[in-house]
């Protein structure tokens, strides 16, 4: 009895030590290259680090909340926030709805068509973001782009040499199309995998009882799909809110003010204008704006992690 009592805690102690030892390299790396920069970012946002401090290696002067006041009282900054938020809402809504539609469609088509859809989506999913953005830049080129050529074919429409980025609404339509197009494969394929979890018997029973397709979708399919739908929507929000590659590449690495999102704006302020502190403050605000969504995501993942 006493032997067991002493052995078990000792064993547990040794286990804990081994576990921490095994985790140590990961924790050290994360702390040094993620934790510390995070701290530095917050610190920087309360200072005034400019090119002079960078070159001379002088300690940047303390600025208190100046950077935040500057951002929060600046119409340009609020424009960027509003634009990023609006883009996120529109692009996530469109891509999740289309993804769901495609997933449902994949259940109705014959096998050959489904395979074709899968292959097409796999190639799009595999394509690097920057390559996809370059492809869209070429498709929408004002002189030789195939998009203008095709639209110009519509009788009565003159789209020769049309510039897609002069009017911000059109430019953002291109960017949104690119993001939605690139996002659909992940959404449709994940959701179609989730749809296989919906019991056929349930749908059959409902149909026999006289439910129409819409009622089956609302009453059976969507409730079963809900956890998965929540996860993919949350991920899409996090990804799209951080939009950088697409507007950056489509605007030749120099996005005009109307094409700035929070991510590109912070980057441009820091590395384009050497306002490292102001850029950091914008980053901090960005993270704070996303915090709710992130906490929600982690809680969902924790629930899943607990299962296995």
């Amino acid at each position: 009895m006493t032997a067991v009592d002493t052995v078990v805690p000792r064993r547990r102690n040794r286990d804990a030590r081994a576990a921490w030892l095994l985790s140590l390299p990961t924790l050290v790396i994360l702390l040094a290259l993620l934790g510390y920069p995070l701290y530095r970012m917050i610190l920087l946002s309360f200072q005034n680090m400019r090119l002079r401090e960078l070159i001379t290696d002088l300690a940047p002067p303390w600025a208190g909340v100046d950077q935040y006041v500057k951002a929060l009282t600046d119409g340009v900054f609020w424009g960027v926030v509003g634009r990023t938020a609006a883009f996120t809402v529109v692009s996530v809504t469109v891509s999740v709805l289309l993804g769901l539609g495609v997933a449902l469609l994949m259940r109705r088509v014959t096998r050959g068509v489904r395979l074709f859809m899968m292959i097409a989506m796999m190639f799009v999913w595999a394509l690097p973001q920057l390559v996809a953005a370059q492809a869209f830049r070429w498709l929408t080129d004002s002189d030789f782009g195939v998009l203008n050529y095709l639209i110009d074919k519509i009788p009565g429409v003159d789209f020769a040499n049309h510039s897609w980025f002069v009017n911000p609404w059109e430019g953002w339509a291109v960017i949104t199309t690119l993001v939605v197009w690139a996002g659909i494969p992940f959404l449709a394929i994940s959701l179609s995998a989730g749809l296989t979890q919906v019991p056929k018997e349930l749908i059959e029973a409902a149909t026999v009882d006289g439910a129409n397709a819409w009622q089956v979708l609302r009453g059976i399919t969507l409730p079963i799909l809900k956890p998965l739908l929540t996860i993919v929507t949350t991920l899409s929000v996090i990804w799209n809110f951080g939009l950088f590659t697409q507007n950056w590449a489509l605007r030749d690495s120099h996005p005009e003010p109307v094409y700035q999102t929070l991510a590109t704006y912070s980057y441009t302020q820091a590395f384009g204008q050497s306002r490292y502190s102001y850029g950091s403050a914008i980053s901090v605000i960005t993270v704070l704006l996303m915090l709710g969504v992130m906490v929600f995501y982690i809680r969902q993942m924790f629930k899943i992690g607990e299962v296995d």
Partner: peptide
Amino acid sequence: FQFYGRRAIILVVLGVQLVPFLALLIP
């Protein structure tokens, strides 16, 4: 291993994945 601090480590590993990495580019 089941050990004290395991949940904390999982939280860190999951949490840092969400920090927009570009935000950390300046520091």
